[in-house]
Write a protein that binds this DNA or RNA. Structure first.
Lengths: 347, 347
DNA sequence: CCGTGGAATGATATCGATCTCATTACGGCA
DNA sequence: TGCCGTAATGAGATCGATATCATTCCACGG
């Protein structure tokens, strides 16, 4: 391709002058500027960002790491980030771990080699994370999203996961539910899930009820009815289920309905994240809404501020409980120990 | 940070030798190599990819452009792309247009400045697209995904949109449906939507039925019942609706159910894309499945082959119709001209 | 003991921009 | 006309790696 030097030659000026036509046009005599721009046009000159990046030691690229794009909560947030970043003249280098924490280190290292100007990470464990510890010693601005570190010194943006789940639990309690369960993905791998469970426990205790043990699903985003079965039948069956994320909740609803349960008459379901699709369903999914777009936008803006040298802030964005038809008051006598209809779809 | 030169000095070798310790370690005496690596470790040396990229004229970055990450069909495909790319040692620069075709040119230009090694695009219009025309003259490998250009010379990967929608239509016809409608987003902006409509028309005509006009929704991923209303009531009401994408279909189902319609008893709904969530719903969404993961993976691999100089291929991946409970045979007498229940949720 | 050839290493140009500092051009004023 | 200060432009170093070609090292055969 044509480079600045050839443009300069064609315009009959020096490299420096040619460069100035783009970076500081006001320094040039308008006639000179015109000649350079004309030459650039003729040669189809395209500035080489790589060379710029090397010389200026700034890539204007942000490195982003999320668990998975298959979960809309991350995809929707990325959409907001991309928009915000591009508006500010930045690009995104997006990577995923597939919920595999052991990949985090290598991926972050690769982004550092690329000399990203900053990092936005959603990791499995924000506390006691050696990747973050290492990053602390580096000079690269770094920001956690969705993670809510307890003691960590890494700035972060998230909702108050504990309070949020406590709110959801309280909502169920206020409706009259008492046997409320909570399901999560492989829990050891997510600090968020643990905080949400704590919120649940807190709310239960506040009502003088013993919190039930967390029910762990084998996958992050897909419910498994077999694991849940013991809690669905009999006199001690659960009347409401809290899920640590919407994907889990949505797949759970489908499975329950196919197994003959009516929602919310037989059992109420609450999700977490508030992905757009949840509101479109029928019954619509009651869910703790994390403001994904706001989180994404705030993340980019905060990181850009940090890059400019401003001191980081730890932000707690406010959550909201989206009411939905997947939740209703418990109907004590309604569900027989075993569901009355055959395990096929029921409308 | 420490650069290669300082590593070389500490190890007591030349820059070139230090570099070889990483790029061609077999050329060095093991003792020399050890000294260099040890020095690199001590200095926490991190290779500067930007400098490498400038010198080698290869970034090992692929530029990706999709309409929106809010639509899972793109997010799921990106997940596959990211995995495939990283395995091959490439990174992704991901950008979105928000379905705004007028942004395509600028975004592509910016990616070219970044000197991406190749481009993977999903554009609004594959034919008569000046961005693509311009790219044709450049030497950057470029690949279309989901787009299915008629005459274009740009290689592409997609399903056969026409045949796919024809299959879905035929499925409905075989069940006995006759009044089958089709809804789409702002259709002028999507070549895919038009091809799918053609497939529908084709299938209808093959059954000696006049295709109905396409019903256009104001948004790409959200149905609007008001627009649809004229087709839902009366003796000529539709008994089945095809949607150009799953988001549209899912939101449509929710809206219909909330308006008192029973699915599929009153009306059948078919989606397109086969996003993961569709299968989890109740009723599960019948949809034309585009193999998103396979498409993403194939896209990356094909593009990498093109980068290596192999000649491009235009690939048609096979689609499949996922059966779902959102479709059933028409029930002629079932739905009154006006729905029998009040417009609240019905189970 | 020396010449020879391959293995190992070094010196230097280069990728394409920006940055700093030096130099030239030019308009105003004595 | 000549001097001066600012505006405009140029020369050359630099960012951090790789690539090419030259040079040194060393073992081995003659």
């Amino acid at each position: 391709m044509a480079d600045l030097l050839s443009v300069a030659k064609l315009a009959g000026v020096s490299r420096a002058t040619a460069a100035r036509a783009f970076s500081q046009p006001e320094l040039l005599r308008s006639e000179t500027r015109r000649r350079v721009l004309e030459a650039a046009r003729r040669l189809a000159f395209r500035p080489n960002r790589v060379a710029q990046q090397l010389r200026t030691r700034s890539t204007r690229i942000l490195g982003v790491l999320v668990p998975s794009l298959d979960n809309p909560v991350f995809a929707e947030q990325l959409q907001a980030m991309e928009t915000a970043a591009r508006q500010a003249g930045y690009s995104l280098l997006i990577t995923t771990t597939g919920y595999d924490a052991s990949k985090e280190a290598e991926i972050v290292e690769e982004m550092l080699r690329q000399r990203v100007d900053g990092l936005i990470l959603t990791v499995a464990e924000a506390d006691s994370n050696d990747v973050l510890d290492k990053l602390g010693k580096e000079s690269v601005p770094c920001l956690l999203v969705y993670n809510q570190p307890a003691n960590a010194d890494t700035p972060s943006i998230s909702v108050d996961n504990r309070a949020a789940m406590a709110d959801a639990t309280t909502h169920l309690l206020d409706l009259g539910h008492r046997r409320i369960g909570m399901i999560a993905g492989p829990v050891l791998q997510s600090d968020r899930a643990r905080l949400r469970y704590e919120g649940y426990c807190q709310a239960m205790r506040a009502h003088r009820l013993p919190p039930l043990p967390l029910i762990e699903m084998p996958r992050h985003t897909h419910a498994d009815l077999a694991v849940l079965e013991p809690h669905l039948y009999g006199s001690e069956r659960l009347t409401a289920l809290l899920c640590t994320n919407d994907m889990l909740a949505i797949s759970l609803m489908g499975d329950l309905q196919r197994a003959g349960f009516s929602i919310p008459a037989d059992i109420s379901v609450v999700g977490f994240d508030g992905i757009a699709l949840g509101a479109l369903l029928n019954p619509s999914l009651c869910s703790v809404v994390q403001p994904r777009a706001a989180i994404g936008q705030a993340a980019v803006n905060t990181l850009l501020a940090m890059i400019k040298g401003e001191s980081p802030t730890r932000e707690r964005l406010s959550h909201a409980l989206r009411q939905g038809d997947s939740v209703g008051p418990p109907t004590p006598g309604s569900a027989a120990p075993f569901p009355s209809t055959s395990p096929t779809q029921r409308r």
